[in-house]
Every structure is written in C-alpha cells, then in structure tokens.
Design a protein around this nucleic acid. Structure first.
Length: 649
RNA sequence: GCCGGCGUGGCGCAGUCCGGUAGCGCAACCGACUUGUAAUCGGUAGGUCGUCGGUUCGAAUCCGACCGCCGGCUCCA
C-alpha cells in the first residue's frame, strides 16, 4: 500500500490500485506526483510525494486550458468532418488549436463551435489516458498526418515533447472516442471546464515555419472561474480603451494618411507638442550626461552599409535602392550607427576625448512586412534616440553602468518604474566576430546588469549580428511589458570601419562601441506612453494644461485676461469660447482629457476664487488663481504623476 | 510576405445576401438661447460608397487586380 506525502507533511495510505485523486481534496484537477504532473486517475505503484494541483495555480490553469483545447478540437472535428488537427497548447492567457480544414472558418462560426463545446462539457466525458507503442499510436491516428509526423519526430530525436525515445510508449487521450496524442495531464472529465470563451480565428504556420502549410488557428481563453474569465475580458476591454491608435485619433495626436503610405506617421499639432516635450526633456538630460549632438543625412551610397554588413544581413528589411549617378545605389538608412562612426573617423581621435558620446534623434526607414505594421509601435519610418559611445577597453565597464543608470532614471521620469532586463546573447549562424569577442562583450554587459538593482533574465541567441545586448523591459499601467531601451556592446564595427585613437602610450588603439537607445523609437515610445497613461498625459507632457470654461459671453474677457497670466507663468492654456452650454463645454474638456478645468462665471468674478475640476471629475473649491498657477507650475516642473493638491482659502 | 476579415461624408454605423443612381447619430458651419461642472433647440452644408478594371440596360451591392486597415503567423539590425 503506497504512502503518499502531501504538502505540510500530511501522510496518506493509498489502497493498492487506487488513483491519487482518491487521496486529494475536492476541487483538485490534477496532481504532481514525485514532481511529475499527472492525472488524478494516475495509480502510483510506490510511495510518492504528491502535490494537488488547484485550477487557480499556474499549473492548474495550464491543465484547464489544455483540456479546453482538446474539447475545442473535438468540437471542430464534429462540425467539420475531415478536419485534421495539429497542435493545441495552453498559452499564458488561454489556449489554441491549429487545424487543417476543408472549408474556411470565420469569426462568425465561433459561436457555433462554442455551442458544440458546451454540449461536450455538459456530457462530463472522462479524459481517458492510454500508454501505447508508437506503432499503435500511428495506427490509431493514421488519418491525422500532423500527429503522425509528431509521433515519428518523437521516435527519431525525442526532441519535441521529450517523452518517448526509441521503443518507448507514447500517451493518448480520448474522450468519447475522440483521440489525441498528448502528454497530459488533463482534468478528470469535461464537466470541470466551462469558464472559457473562443476569441479569435487566424492563420498560423505548421511548426511556426513560413515554408510549411498554413493552418487555421482557433484560439480562446479559459479560467478557473467565470469571475476570472470576466475579469480577463474586462482587462482586454481596458487595453482596447487605451489603444494608442484610437486615442491618437480621438485626441488629434497623429494619423497615417493612406497617401503617404503604410507605417508612415504624421504628428498633428497636439501630438507634435507632446512629442517635442518628450524629446526636449531627453535632449536636456543627454546634454547634462555628456552626450554631444550630431546630425546625419537620411540617404547614403550603398558602400556604407556594405562595410557595416547591414546589406549582407538585412537587405530585405531595407527599402530598395535608388539608382543615381551612373548606376550608383543610394539607400534610405535603416540605422544611424555607420554615420556616427564616420563622424568619429573624420579626424584623428585622442584617448582624452573618450568616452565620446554622439547622440542624434535619427530618422531611419525600414521596410517592415506589410502584415506587421501596427500603429506607432511598428512603423516603416521611425526616429531613434540613438547614441553611439566610443570608449577605451578600460572605460567600458564604468560606461555601461553609467548608461544603465541613466537609462532607468530617465525612463522613470517619463512615468515607467517597473522594470526587468534581458541579456541577449550571440545568435548562432547569424553573427560576426569571434566567439571570444562575444564572450568578453557578453560578460561586460552581464556584470553591468547584475550591478543594477533590477531583475535580469537571459535571452539566448537574441543578440544583434554585431554584438550582444541588454534590453530594458518595462511594465505599463495595466501590467503589459514592452521592450524599451537597448544597450549593445560592439567590437565589430570598430574593426570593419578600422576605427582608432591615439593612446597615452602614443600607440594606436581600437575603441569599443556601445550602441544605445532609450525610447528605441520615439514613435513607439509615444504610443506606449499614450497607452500607459490612457491618453491622460501627466501635466508636464499634456498638450493642454488648464482649460477655461466661461459661463456666458460676458465672462470670456475675464478668462482671457487670467489665461494670459497663466500663460505668462509657462502654462499651456485654452479658453473655450464656443457658444455652447456649460455642460457641453465641460464634457468637451473631459473628452479632451484636459488636466484642469475652471468654470468662470459671476461668482468667480465677484469672489476672485475658483473651483478647479480635475480629470477625475473631482472639484476643488475656493482656489485662488495665484495658488492654482503656482501649484500647476510646480506639478509640471516636477514631472509629478500625482495631481496637485490645491490650497483652499 | 502568408491566412482570414474589413474599407459607405471628419468619427461611429445602416444599406451589400435578393443590383434600380445613398441614410442615421455625433462632429463642422449658421441662427436662437447666455447658460454653473459629462451632451439646449432649430437649420445648413458635406459622400463619383478605398482605387482601377470587368459583368450588366443599370453596380455601394456581383467578379478581378491593386491600395489601405484589423486579428493572428512569420520577421524585427
């Protein structure tokens, strides 16, 4: 009789042949037995440590979602005879299953599939596990070529799921006769599912390779409870409400005229103002941090990118060349680095000049595939807040630490404060330079990163072709992470461009380069901040800071008078002199996300004090104009995220 | 680039399946009202229905190509 050890050292005797589920609390959907995830129907043949898996845990959600994926596939097979099913994993928010179908499925068909799934759930079909030989599994799934391919792959290399080596068995799961190859575990029966929703149908390549046939991916989300599901759907709505593409239009910030082309943004006056404020503050900070500002052209002869290697590695990602001057090819630049390098190389450099930090808001053009262009976050014309730092070998470590500190400080000033870092290493088969150089560069980056008080995760093989990088990931107001800044160490370009400086020893040395960008792309950063703030920019970035709403025409003059004073104090003010009702003007101010609104009528003219309405709709009574202006000036200059507290009389 | 969906005045939508020369709300403009913290009332103007081509007596509607957008996949120096 095996003895099970449950958490907190609870010991349970399990009668011979009984499944682990018999010993576990109600509501458990699977278990870890000796660390291995198992079905509740698993029968241990020996003593084991057993950990129940609750649907609320990460493990449990995985089981739930994966089981829901099976039900999805079963429903699709019922409704679309001849459907072939490929893979159907759980994801961080739900699940999907990829199919090859004889007829297209549309989003409008999801309701029908959903209904079928719920019928299956209602029937409480048990998930039955069988261990079978590979040959038997292939026989059972002979009309499912994707499954057969997976099984054969398992036998050959065992690399896919890592379970079955030569001669070993694989596991099948079936419910109501519908069979799938699967490692499990699953919930005991379909009746334990239900808090799910199909969300999307899209194309996806078999095994993620664009050379393979494209399958139909049906995806959905699933949660432990209906409340969790609704909370998730609510988060999606919140993300939609914050979508910078919608806010960009509603707040009149930017647009993408069709006539200009896909992925090429124009910034309107209000968006232009926000962008300029972002850039101006960045310039100021860079200036203080010892960066020198340069300007470089947008086009160049091909030679430059032949030397850099970009044409060899990224020609597909560049706009095709213009042919000029008797066959000379000119390219729009996809990167600024080679141009900054030429500035370094324009004369003999001394070690006394290093570190030399060259900064530019450099606009570059990249031919992104039409299907990936997305709002401001993935564009074809973008402006990098790009700098290249030339250092001696000795200076590299210090400089990296100071760059990282600078980067995080500055991001915090823009309102992002929840970070982690990722260290991306050498991309196999797509890298230049010796492994030794890569090791040195990677090690320098790692040491600098570990010196920071921010979590670090590895991204093996994610580096650029010329060097490893640290990227700073930031979480926004609703918990999504965005890759922000990148910092790369590069020994390659200095060699390719034969960069040198004269050392204290009067000999020539090769500098090391650091490539770094904080925003990455100004456009993208703009989009991310717009979503982070849901369009309600903090006062210092807000295109409008104070709005006056005169009650009647006779109050307009007074509004303009005090507005002029606020303006003189450096505030951005708007007087709404439209001939609308007060209610309508308040509403307009609210929709424009005006940070502060003053309604000015007879009362204010008489008393000289005001009621300040903030974006939340809260009203602050009895504020004098001078204290209001002082508070707003203070709030704007501190880049505070919190709103001003007004002193009342 | 690939799969699927979509494209009607500035915006949100109806009309498309079952061809017969465009309609609603908001916004804009004009007028009346002179208003107290999220929409006052009335009127006016604005669209060759993404573009080009085809079918038809006739195309927003059917077919094709292209452009653009949306959701994924792949990619992201």
């Amino acid at each position: 009789m095996p003895t099970l050890t449950l958490p907190e050292d609870v010991r349970v005797e399990l009668p011979e042949g009984e499944p682990v589920g018999a010993a576990l609390p109600k509501g458990t959907i699977a278990a870890r037995v000796g660390g291995e995830p198992r079905d509740l129907s698993f029968v241990p043949d020996d003593d084991a440590e057993v950990e129940p898996i609750s649907p609320h845990s990460d493990d449990g959600l995985y089981v739930l979602r994966h089981s829901t994926a099976h039900v999805l596939a079963q429903a699709v097979c019922d409704l679309y005879p001849g459907a072939r099913y490929a893979i159907g994993p759980a994801t961080s928010e739900g699940f999907y299953y990829d199919f090859e179908l004889t007829e297209p499925v549309h989003a409008s068909d999801l309701a029908k599939i959903d209904r079928r799934m719920r019928q299956i759930v209602k029937r409480n079909q048990p998930f039955v596990r069988e261990e079978v030989t590979r040959e038997h599994a292939i026989e059972r799934l002979h009309d499912q070529p994707f499954k057969v391919e997976i099984i054969e792959g398992l036998g050959a290399g065992g690399d896919a799921a890592g379970e079955a080596a030569e001669g070993e068995t694989v596991s099948l799961y079936s419910n109501d006769g519908w069979v799938d190859l699967c490692m499990g575990p699953h919930v005991p029966h379909t009746g334990m599912l239900g808090a799910f929703k199909l969300t999307n149908v899209a194309g996806a390549y078999w095994r993620g390779d664009e050379k393979n046939p494209q399958l139909t991916r049906i995806s959905g989300t699933a949660w432990a409870t209906q409340d969790d599901l609704e909370a998730y759907l609510h988060r999606l709505e919140e993300a939609e409400r914050r979508d910078h593409r919608k806010l960009g239009h509603d707040l009149d910030l930017f647009s993408f005229p069709d006539e200009i082309g896909s992925g090429l943004a124009v910034f309107h006056p209000k968006g232009g103002l926000v962008r300029r404020l972002m850039e101006d503050y960045s310039r100021k900070r860079h200036e203080e941090a010892g960066y020198e500002f340069v300007y470089t052209p947008h086009i160049t002869k091909s030679e430059l990118f032949e030397i850099s290697g970009h044409l060899q590695w990224f020609a597909d990602g560049m706009f095709p060349p213009m042919q000029l001057d008797g066959g000379q090819d000119y390219y729009l630049k996809p990167m600024n680095c080679p141009m900054h390098i030429l500035i370094f190389r324009s004369r003999t450099r001394s070690y006394r000049e290093l570190p030399l930090r060259l900064f530019e808001f450099g606009t570059v053009y990249r031919y992104e595939l039409s299907g990936v262009v997305h709002g401001l976050t993935r564009v074809r014309g973008l402006t990098m807040d790009d700098a290249h730092i030339f250092t001696t070998e000795d200076q590299l470590g210090d400089e990296l630490r100071s760059v990282l500190t600078f980067v995080l400080d500055l991001l915090r000033d823009y309102g992002l404060d929840d970070f982690y870092m990722e260290l991306s290493t050498r991309p196999e088969g797509k890298a230049v330079g010796t492994p030794e150089e890569w090791d040195v560069a990677t090690e320098e980056l790692r040491r600098a990163a570990e010196w920071m008080d921010v979590p670090l995760v590895m991204d093996e093989g994610g580096g650029a072709f010329y060097g490893p990088k640290i990227s700073v990931q930031a979480r926004d107001a609703i918990g999504r992470t965005w890759q922000m800044s990148t910092i790369q160490v590069d020994f390659q370009f200095p060699q390719r461009f034969e960069l040198e400086y004269s050392g204290a020893d009067n000999a020539r040395h090769r500098p090391t380069m650091i490539h770094r960008a904080l925003f990455g792309s100004v456009e993208r950063f703009f989009g991310i901040l717009t979503e982070h703030y849901a369009g309600a920019f903090p006062l210092w970035l807000s295109p409008e800071q104070l709005r006056f709403v005169p009650v009647a025409d006779r109050h307009v003059a007074h509004c303009e008078e005090v507005a002029a004073k606020a303006k003189a104090a450096g505030l951005r003010v708007v007087v709404d002199d439209s001939k609308e009702s007060v209610g309508k003007k308040i509403r307009a101010a609210q929709l424009a996300k005006a940070p502060y609104t003053l309604v000015v009528g007879d009362k204010e003219l008489e008393s000289g004090s005001y009621t300040v309405r903030d974006r939340s709709g809260a009203e602050h009574l009895g504020v004098t104009f001078d204290s209001l202006v002082a508070a707003l000036v203070e709030e704007a200059s501190s880049r505070a995220l919190a709103q001003s507290n007004f002193e009342s009389e």
